[in-house]
């Protein structure tokens, strides 16, 4: 298996109360394709910061992030987010005045990736695959439950037909049963659809279901 995402000597720090706080220190790691990763770590270890950097939402102080061998700054962070990756947030981050279907279509409308012509049907099918039937797909997202909203968020992450999906505490707001269901979806995505899933979590139950577990501690990643 080849590497889809490589991190080279990443450094990240910020000033807190007049002192520089080093979050990531010469961090290097390689993520292989079609795998379901979980990144574990104690609170404040920099998991979300790391996810922001690899998702192109923020930039490191130094070091390189390579996507399929290309530096993401060379691809362009905007383009990288639009065409190469998707993100699932803990807060779902759906747009409240759009329906579940329209939220999925939003990702399709922004990407430059090749998509089927009948986007609406594709979006309905995607949602249905994650348990959102068409009657619910046409509802505004704030009329859905938390679990349903997270499913919509996952459907949206798949809509733009990318191979790398990040998720930041995707089950943090969900009950145990729904958590299992969502993680099961991620596993399927990696194994059946060939996507690479990188989930940041502090939950052992989530990480126990992943293919590879990685620990972020003292600014470095270690394979468990």
């Amino acid at each position: 298996m080849s590497a889809i995402l490589e991190l080279e000597n990443l450094n990240y720090s910020y000033i807190d109360g007049g002192y520089e706080r080093q979050i990531l220190q010469d961090l290097s790691y390689s993520f292989e394709e079609k795998q379901f990763y979980t990144i574990l770590g104690p609170s404040g270890s920099g998991k979300t910061t790391l996810l922001s950097l690899v998702a192109g939402l923020d930039t490191p102080k130094s070091g390189r992030i390579l996507f399929e061998g290309k530096d993401i700054t060379e691809i362009g962070l905007h383009k990288y987010r639009r065409n190469d990756i998707s993100i699932v947030f803990q807060q779902y981050n759906l747009i409240s005045y759009l329906t579940a279907l329209e939220n999925v279509l939003l990702a399709m409308s922004e990407t430059d990736n090749e998509l089927p012509k009948d986007r609406k049907n594709v979006a309905y099918n995607l949602l249905e695959r994650f348990g959102i039937v068409s009657s619910k797909a046409d509802r505004l997202v704030n009329q859905l439950s938390g679990g349903e909203q997270q499913r919509v968020a996952i459907a949206r992450s798949l809509a733009s037909n990318v191979n790398l999906i990040f998720a930041d505490e995707p089950t943090g707001n969900l009950d145990t049963a729904t958590e299992k269901e969502i993680i099961g979806i991620f596993k399927d995505l990696a194994h059946e659809y060939g996507k690479t899933i990188i989930v940041v979590t502090h939950s052992d139950s989530v990480s126990s279901m992943s293919d590879q577990r990685v620990l972020l501690k003292d600014g470095k990643l270690t394979k468990l």
Binding site: R81, N83, S86, S96
Partner: peptide, 13 residues
Amino acid sequence: EYEIGVLLSVGAS
């Protein structure tokens, strides 16, 4: 703000 963040995170200009 969240909407702006979401739109930018999905690659909207």
